[in-house]
Computed example of a mutant assay.
Amino acid sequence: MGFLNRGNKFEIDGRTVLLTGGSYGMGRSIAALLSARGAHLILVARDPQKLHSALAFAKSHAKNPSTQRFHYISADVTSESENTRLLAEAVAWNNGRVPEIVWTNAGSASPMLYIESSIETLRKQMDLNYWGAAYLAHKTLKQWLYPETPYTHDAKPEAPRHFVVTSSVVAFTGLAGYATYGPAKTALRALCDALQHEVLLYNGARRSGKKSATAPAPFDVKIHTIYPGTIKSPGLEQENLTKHPVTHLLEESDPAQTEMEAALSAVRGLERGNYMTPTNWLGELMRLGCLGGSPKDNLVKDMLGQWLASIVWLFVRPDLEGKVWGWGKKEGMPDFKPQTK
Rank of each mutant, 00 (worst) to 15 (best):
L308A: 11
G96R: 10
R6N: 06
E100D: 08
H248T: 02
H244T: 08
E82I: 02
E100Y: 03
K232W: 04
I115V: 11
G269W: 02
L128K: 03
D220M: 07
L250P: 12
F3D: 06
K301D: 03
S233F: 06
T84S: 12
V165Y: 11
R189S: 08
F315P: 01
R268S: 10
P234G: 12
T214V: 10
P245M: 07
A217T: 01
A266V: 01
Y135K: 03
T16G: 07
N240L: 11
F315D: 05
A54H: 03
T173I: 08
A159K: 15
N64H: 14
D335E: 08
P99Q: 06
A75N: 10
K323E: 13
R97E: 15
A106M: 10
T140Q: 11
V44P: 07
A62K: 06
V221M: 08
S81T: 09
S208N: 11
S253N: 13
R6I: 01
L41A: 00
A92W: 07
W131T: 00
L200Y: 07
A54P: 06
E284C: 07
V170Y: 04
Y114E: 11
C192E: 15
N274W: 04
S108T: 09
K59A: 02
Y151C: 00
I231F: 11
I30V: 14
A62C: 06
W131Y: 15
L308C: 07
D127G: 02
Q49L: 08
D254F: 13
V17S: 00
S265D: 04
L291E: 05
N129W: 10
H197I: 00
R28T: 02
G107Y: 01
I223P: 00
R268N: 15
M333E: 13
G209A: 07
Q49C: 00
N129R: 10
M126T: 05
D47E: 10
A256N: 08
F315R: 07
E252N: 11
G235E: 09
E252V: 03
E82R: 05
G204L: 04
Q238C: 06
L55M: 14
L128N: 03
R69F: 02
R268F: 03
G292T: 03
Y202A: 09
G107H: 04
S233A: 10
N240R: 15
P255C: 12
C290Y: 10
V300E: 06
L291Q: 09
G174Y: 11
P150S: 08
L241Q: 15
W103F: 15
D254K: 04
T140W: 13
A58E: 02
G209W: 13
G22N: 04
V77L: 05
A205N: 12
T277I: 00
A62N: 07
S74R: 08
T230D: 12
A179K: 03
A54R: 02
G209V: 00
E80C: 09
V91N: 01
V312W: 12
Y130T: 00
G269S: 09
T340R: 14
L241T: 10
P160Q: 09
W313E: 13
L136P: 12
Y72W: 13
S118F: 06
L19R: 05
A31D: 08
A176Q: 09
E321T: 05
R287S: 05
Q125G: 05
L4I: 01
V169I: 14
